[in-house]
Design a protein around this nucleic acid. Structure first.
Length: 403
DNA sequence: TCTGGGGTCCTAGGACCC
DNA sequence: TCTGGGGTCCTAGGACCC
């Protein structure tokens, strides 16, 4: 049953969320390969490779969900709950494709659009297109007919309420969550369901007797900020349906990173450097693709004890050169690592600036030469896909430099 | 609980400057 | 080379999202 709620001329926001995105998108792709199998209709999951220690559930089908399989658990654990589970590997290139196509369809419904994650968009409702429920239904139909997967749509007067609404019953549903509806639709929900109320915050709130969104909404704000600081104010507002953030295009990332959980623990510098080179190659490629340079290079290290640390170095002259990023990463690792076995290594690049605005007066011939090498590698990557292993001639030498 | 990878935003302490 | 305060930048870590 759809409850008709008066729409009094305020701006409306839709939150469009692909249902079990990775699983649906893999399903559509498998069907396209002339298969009769729709993995949405069997107990199935998308998960990494356990042999490479990446075996966690990234998405699940409805039938897997019914067996209590949850996102983030290990394949082993999921198989215990559901032995007949079929497991499929993720394909991020395919996911990026569907994400983009979903955005292109949504652009037909609104010029004011924000991609929130790979499978979620916010758009501002355009009243000229018709009543909002009809428009939402048209969006659902067009995405399903053209792309083959279902979406949930949440509708409200701000982003947080729209997002909470799209999270109600799934799949292929449209929900409203207007201010006058929060008491019945939002407040009875457990505190964990509130956007941005994660593990830590919900535990603290439960400790002081707040176990539903409604109790948080009616609690004294100063009590909440005492326990949760500025985050508390945000959560208290959200519980009361207050959010004045706007829909904004995010054209540039503020940060790029790449990390890998290695199939075996790393306990020697030479191996660590080889992996850092591969990571530096990947992440600097992202940087160059987005036409940026980075002032700050951070390495991330997760030990086999699951202890994590980061170390960074800031440069007065930003870079996007693989060699420079690689060398600084090696230097950081070398300075801080006591050879405790490493499980994961990562590099992230931040404090980004646009490439074309940079002054070129520091460019030496060596930098230009290095830049040309990187460009030619980027061309190869673009041509043959990013999964192939390119090792530049200097790879071995670079590794040896840091022995 | 044997635990991925790519992001965003915030906080706290220290260095440095005026 | 003793002390205050405010502002800014850097570093490291943490919480949260999908």
């Amino acid at each position: 049953m759809v409850i008709i709620v008066k729409y009094d001329g305020k701006k409306l926001i839709f939150h469009i969320d692909a249902n079990s995105a990775f699983l649906s998108w893999s399903a559509v792709e498998i069907l396209k390969e002339n298969s009769d199998l729709d993995i949405r209709n069997i107990p199935s999951i998308i998960a990494g490779d356990p042999e490479n220690r990446r075996g966690i559930v990234l998405a699940k089908s409805t039938l897997a969900k019914e067996k209590n399989v949850i996102t983030g658990e290990t394949i082993q654990s999921a198989l215990t709950k559901c032995p007949e589970l079929q497991i499929f590997r993720p394909n991020y290139e395919v996911y990026k494709k569907y994400s983009k196509q979903m955005g292109e369809i949504l652009l037909n419904y609104s010029p004011n659009i924000e991609q929130y994650s790979i499978d979620e968009y916010f758009i501002e409702y355009v009243p000229l297109l018709g009543p909002y429920l009809d428009v939402a239904k048209n969006i659902q139909d067009e995405i399903y007919n053209k792309l083959g997967f279902t979406v949930n749509i949440g509708i409200s007067t701000n982003k947080v309420l729209a997002k909470m609404a799209s999270d109600f019953e799934k799949p292929n549903k449209i929900h409203t969550l207007f201010l006058e509806e929060i008491e019945t639709k939002l407040w009875p929900l457990p505190i964990e369901n509130l956007f941005l109320c994660g593990n830590k915050s919900s535990k603290k709130l439960r400790k002081i007797g707040i176990d539903t969104i409604g109790k948080l909404a009616k609690s004294d704000e100063s009590l909440i900020t005492y326990h949760l600081k500025s985050q508390g104010k945000i959560l208290h507002n959200y519980a009361n349906g207050i959010d004045d953030s706007i829909i904004e295009k995010r054209d540039k990332n503020k940060y790029h990173s790449n990390s890998v959980t290695t199939s075996k623990d790393i306990d020697d510098l030479e191996t660590a450097y080889k992996i850092l080179l591969a990571i530096a190659e990947n992440v600097s490629n992202k940087l160059r693709e987005s036409k940026c340079k980075a002032h700050t290079i951070t390495i991330q290290v997760k030990l086999n004890t699951f202890q994590t640390f980061t170390h960074c170095k800031s440069l007065s002259i930003p870079t996007n050169l693989t060699k420079e990023i690689y060398e600084i990463s090696c230097e950081l690792l070398c300075n801080y690592w006591d050879l405790t076995p490493i499980r994961l290594l990562g590099i992230s690049l931040s404090n980004l600036v646009e490439d074309e605005n940079l002054q070129l007066d520091f460019f030496s011939m060596d930098l230009i030469k290095q830049s040309n090498i990187d460009n030619s590698i980027d061309n190869i990557l673009n041509k043959f896909g990013k999964d192939i292993n390119i090792s530049r001639g200097s790879t071995i030498n670079l590794s040896k430099n840091f022995k």
